[in-house]
Design a binder for these strands. Structure first.
Length: 202
DNA sequence: CACCCGATTATCT
DNA sequence: GATAATCGGGTGT
């Protein structure tokens, strides 16, 4: 268990990964790992769906400039931007942008549970169906399963071990293609195909 | 399985 | 005062 955590920390994604054009980072995060180590509990999920939100994008929280809520996305690259959505759910993003944009982030929309599945099920107590499929297949679901809340807004994912992102050199690599589409749940900029997801090949 | 709708509140206008 | 980067339960096919 401790060896696993050490290995994951060795594989952590660094600042240069996130200091690139936001849609490129969103694309390349697919297949990477979302890791949380908190209260001696290790949770790991493979990222299978993301969305890019750039500051020149009418659908982004940052489109109309800096406010108290969105200030994280104008701040240091690699930090976590956690926002409350629909009054009920949390959304988890990582700040990512190149020098052409003052703000930007990638929303992690879905992961596949790999480690700590029983804890995730417990965290998702409200789920009537605690099956693997319904555990972390949505932005509000994965934050609930991982215990990510508003207190994690602004957390530095480049140095924190509570939450970080890592490449996958541990778990089996499956064959898949990367698909893109319009983003979910937005009314503006529907023509931007900035949602990326993994489609498994059988 | 597809669609529809209510819940619930921070944030912005 | 309206909207929202969602979810889960319900209804109907």
């Amino acid at each position: 268990m401790n060896n696993l955590l050490r290995k994951l920390l060795d594989d952590r994604l660094a600042q240069d990964f996130f200091t690139r054009e936001t849609t490129k980072v969103a694309h390349d995060l697919l297949g990477k790992l979302l890791v949380s180590y908190h209260n001696k509990i290790l949770l790991v999920g493979k990222i299978v769906e993301t969305e890019a939100y750039r500051s020149d994008d009418p659908a982004s929280h940052t489109y109309r400039g800096k406010t108290e809520r969105n200030s994280t996305m104008f701040g240091p690259i690699g930090h976590a931007y956690v926002y409350i959505n629909y009054g009920i759910h949390y959304g988890f993003n990582v700040v990512a942008r190149d020098e052409n944009f003052p703000a930007g982030g990638v929303l992690i929309r879905a992961v596949e549970p790999l480690e700590g599945i029983e804890v995730m099920k417990k965290n998702r107590h409200s789920a009537s169906d605690a099956s693997l499929k319904n555990l972390t297949n949505g932005p509000g679901k994965l934050t609930q399963a991982f215990g990510i809340t508003k207190v994690d807004d602004h957390l530095d994912l480049l140095t924190s071990s509570k939450i970080f992102l890592a490449k996958n050199s541990i778990y089996p690599h499956e064959n898949y293609t990367i698909e893109k589409s319009s983003r979910i749940g937005i009314s503006k900029a529907r023509e931007y195909l900035w949602r990326f997801y993994i489609k498994k090949l059988s």
